[in-house]
């Protein structure tokens, strides 16, 4: 149940927060999720946030990129030395790493209070 709640909260955060507020609010929110929904190890918290963020940003950008027939993805990928598809993956990994670490931070902070 906690995992489902975690998944849902991170997914909603990654989808709505960057559209309507400031992008880095995803950090504090993911940390709060890690802090308030404690289960398993810190690494599980990291992994769930990482995967969900990767999927949400990866799919969102994947759809945009393919609707655009990869024109922009390929061009911007070229700036960073990767393919258009590589850039979609990087966008997902980028979100995953940021929120994963934020959730892990929240989770590890919670561990301190457990004592």
């Amino acid at each position: 149940m906690k995992i489902i709640l975690h998944i849902a909260l991170i997914a909603l955060t990654l989808f709505f927060v960057p559209q309507y507020t400031i992008w880095w609010y995803i950090g504090p929110i993911a940390a709060l999720v890690g802090f308030l929904i404690p289960y398993g190890k810190t690494f599980s918290s990291f992994l769930i946030s990482f995967l969900i963020s990767f999927i949400v940003w990866g799919i969102s950008t994947g759809i945009l990129a393919s609707q655009n027939e990869m024109i922009l993805a390929d061009r911007v990928g070229n700036i960073f030395g990767v393919s258009g598809f590589g850039l979609v993956l990087i966008t997902g990994l980028f979100a995953g790493l940021l929120t994963g670490l934020a959730s892990a931070s929240g989770h590890s902070l919670r561990q301190l209070f457990k004592q």
């Binding site: 960057p18 992008w23 940003w57 945009l64 990129a65 922009l72 993805a73 911007v76 966008t91």
Partner: peptide
């Protein structure tokens, strides 16, 4: 600023629309 740049909804990806 990479965060805003990669933000799929407001960063460069939005220019595909």
């Amino acid at each position: 600023a990479l965060g805003q740049f990669f933000n799929p909804f407001e960063g460069f990806w939005a220019n595909t629309q």
